[in-house]
Amino acid sequence: MNNKELQFAYKVRHALDASLDALPDDTTQRLAAARRVALARKKKGATVKVQQYSLANAIGGGNLSQPQTPSWLSRLGVAVPLLAGVLLFASLYQHEHSQRVNELADIDAAVLSDELPLSAYLDHGFNAFLAERGE
């Protein structure tokens, strides 16, 4: 069934469903009887195939009569953005980590190149002195 035939079938089904409540009782009883006869004639071992359609096929106008399995291209379409996201987050982490290391290296270089001994930085009185001076 091509796309136009399928659309026509959907329109017919919708029109029939819309006017279902307006049918007389004798017509609905005859339709129910015809359905029972059809079900009785159905082969015992026959199974009804239920087809599943993907949203991409319905939107893209693909062949709706046959369900399609995901191809390698559609899997690649999922994998590539996922891989790009992982690489983006890894590069952001690396950049932030290197910035933190550079900041710590600058602090260490400033402390080691200062004229004050290291014990002065551990003295609580020195911290109070710096707080009073506003440094």
Rank of each mutant, 00 (worst) to 15 (best):
S119H: 04
S74Q: 06
A110V: 02
A110F: 03
A46D: 06
Q7R: 13
K11R: 03
Q51K: 14
L118W: 02
Q51E: 04
S91P: 02
M1H: 08
K44N: 05
L83E: 01
D108W: 01
L82C: 01
L6V: 15
D21K: 02
R30V: 14
N3V: 13
H97L: 10
F129Q: 02
A38H: 08
G61P: 02
Q68K: 15
N127Y: 10
V37F: 14
R30N: 04
W72Y: 06
D106L: 05
K43Y: 13
N2K: 10
L23E: 06
D26Y: 14
T47Y: 09
E103T: 03
N127L: 12
A110K: 06
F8N: 07
S113L: 06
S19W: 04
K42E: 10
R36N: 04
V78R: 10
R75G: 10
G60E: 01
D17K: 14
F89L: 13
K44S: 06
R41A: 11
E135N: 03
R13I: 02
P67G: 01
A128M: 04
V78W: 14
H97K: 12
A128C: 04
A9S: 13
I107V: 13
D114H: 06
N57V: 13
V101N: 01
R36P: 00
I59T: 09
V111M: 00
Q52M: 13
R100Q: 07
L122H: 10
I59M: 03
L87R: 05
R35F: 14
A58G: 11
A120G: 01
